[in-house]
Design a protein around this nucleic acid. Sequence first.
DNA 1: ATCATCCCCTGATGGC
DNA 2: TGCCATCAGGGGATGA
Length: 271
Amino acid sequence: MPELPEVETVRQQLKKTLSDQPTVTQVKALRADLRFPIPELSGLKNQKIFDIQRRAKYLLFQLNNNVLISHLGMTGYWRFLKDEFLNKHDHLIIGLSNGKNLVYNDPRRFGFVDLLEKDNIESSRWLHHLGPEPWDEELFTAKYMQKKAKSSQRNIKVFLMDQEVVVGVGNIYASEALFQAGIDPKKKAGRLKLAEWQKLVQVIPQILKQAVQGGGTTLRDYRNVFGGYGGHQVALKVYGRADEPCVVCKEPIKKAVMGGRSTYWCSKCQK
DNA sequence: ATCATCCCCTGATGGC
DNA sequence: TGCCATCAGGGGATGA
C-alpha cells in the first residue's frame, strides 16, 4: 500500500496530533501476530512519545528508552480511536495520557511492529540493509546509482524498487519516475548512461515531494490518520492508466508485469 | 554477489 | 445470488 509519500504523510499527521508528547498509559494487542509476532509491548507504559520519525517506509515512534518501529505493509494504517468502537482488523491499541487512543488496523497483516533499543537502530535487522533516502542529496547521486547498478542485469523498474538501492520508491512511483525521466522501464539498470541517472536522481525526489504535497496516493486501501483519502492519485500520469492516451503524446499507455508487479509506461516518450 | 520465486493475508472486482 | 479466478501500492526468506 504505502510508499514513501504515504508513510511521510502519516508521519506528519501523527507528529502534529501528538505534539503534546503524551505518555503511553496502556498497550493492548488484539492478536499475537501480524506479519511477524507482536513483541511484548508493556514496557512502553509510562514512556513519553516525543517524536515521530520516518526511515524508508518505516515509522519510528521515538520514546524515552525504545523506538517503536511500524511498517504498514500493503494495507496497514494508524488512526485515533473514536468512542469505544473497534473496527474489523484493528490489531493494536495504544492508550495515551492525553486521552487519545492510537489504533493500528491492517486487513492483510503484511505490516508489523517491533520494539527496538534506542541506540543504533540503523543497524537493526529492519534498517541495516537499506539504501539512502531519496531526499539525501549527499548520498543519492547519479554516480552512486551508476556504481550500484554497474553489474546489475535487472531492468530499471525493478532496480528502482530495490530498497537496498534507494528507499521509498514502490510500484506506483517507480513507473511515474521513469515516465518523468523518459526512460523505458525495460532497460537494463547496468546500461543507463550517467545523464539518465542524473535525470532519475533529479526526478525521483521531485515526484515523491509532489505526492506528499498531494497527501499521498489512494488507489484502494490507503487512508491517512484521519481516515481520509490521499489526493495525489489524480496527478498520476501513467500508473493505472493502461490503454489511456499518454498525457504528452496521446500514444496508448502500455502495461506489463515486471518483477511480479504491474508496470505502466509510454512507449513513445520513454526510450 | 545477484536475482527470481515463493509466500504471508484479506477484500474488491469481474466473468460465468 | 453464488462461485471462482485474478489482482492489489511490500519485502523477508530461500535457493539457484
